[in-house]
Design a protein around this nucleic acid. Structure first.
Lengths: 118, 118
DNA sequence: TGGTATAGTTACCTTTTTGATACTAAGGAG
DNA sequence: CTCCTTAGTATCAAAAAGGTAACTATACCA
């Protein structure tokens, strides 16, 4: 089933709009290579299944590499493809806007950015 | 219910990730002011209800203005807020990436960008 | 008197997305 | 033996998102 996009921004949004996809990409961008379990730790609240699914979709869309080491227990490493890195500038802009938006809506708003624990 | 974001990019994605929100923002960016019906023409396939909902959410998030003229039949104009325009550069980057992505995946892919009819 | 126009709202359904939970493979540690 | 490890799958349930169709208000036109 061939998807029909009416506007180029839909292509990008399609690829980035999963509940965890943006954050996954940001972490891979910051840290380079991450194993499945490491990624999971950085996304408090994802279920196993959902994380797997989001990663598979990112892989299908050509944004992340999946490197499987043939060993038990399994070891799988994820990283951005060269192609995924072309999205970095965009992701950074989105982060900046997010920070400003949060500042702007201020303490009375109904949204809140959580600080990372050390 | 206060939303808890773990990462600033979630703030932005939250605001932009509706099925039609990105395209709506792009059209408002290109054309300035659009009435409900004009917007609807530019989004082949949206339902009345969904378009209304997407616009309401964009309004709540402070990205678009809604100007109601007290007349019958009703006339309502939508435009970007100053705040929404701060997202323009980001939206443009997303469009560019979308175009390149589409080019890259090429004619064998299962996605397709439709040309606007005149 | 009846039809047209615009920007909705409402009730009801279907599809899509996400979550919770339990299960698996195969080697090493105790 | 038995348990622990990791990166999954499978199954079932719940929630979120979106779609369809019908209805509204009020002025104007024929």
């Amino acid at each position: 089933m061939r998807k029909q996009y009416m506007h180029p921004i839909e292509v990008t949004l399609d690829v980035v709009c999963g509940k965890w996809k943006g954050v996954i990409l940001c972490h891979l961008q910051e840290e380079g290579i991450l194993r499945f379990g490491e990624l999971k730790k950085r996304l408090p609240g994802v279920s196993q299944k959902t994380l797997t699914l989001q990663l598979r979709e990112l892989e299908e869309d050509g944004l992340v590499n999946r490197k499987v080491y043939p060993q038990v227990p399994p070891k799988v490493e994820y990283s951005l493809t060269e192609y995924g890195t072309e999205l970095e500038a965009t992701l950074e802009m989105m982060c900046e806007w997010g920070i400003n938006h949060h500042d702007k809506v201020g303490p009375n708003s109904d949204s809140q950015l959580i600080e990372k624990p050390n």
